[in-house]
Amino acid sequence: MNFLLNNREEVIDADNLTVSMMLELKKFSFRMRIIRINGVFIPKEQYDTTFIREGDNVMMLYLMSGG
């Protein structure tokens, strides 16, 4: 399946890919992050139940302590 991750083409060999699975496959490990799919904010509680679909535009950013 192809989708955009932070404006880069991403190919993952899976038909039913949840946000949680994507994070695990990509080894994204930081705790504090924000994810939007096609502009819609995805709350943490929905990572297990939200599917990434063909052609989706996934935006992810990490929030680092310090200020």
Binding site: M32, R33, I34, R36, F41, P43, L63, M64, S65, G67
Partner: peptide
């Protein structure tokens, strides 16, 4: 300063 506050603010605004 703290990452969890940054996350809370972003979630709230979005």
């Amino acid at each position: 300063d703290r990452d969890e506050m940054k996350e809370m603010l972003l979630e709230t605004i979005l």
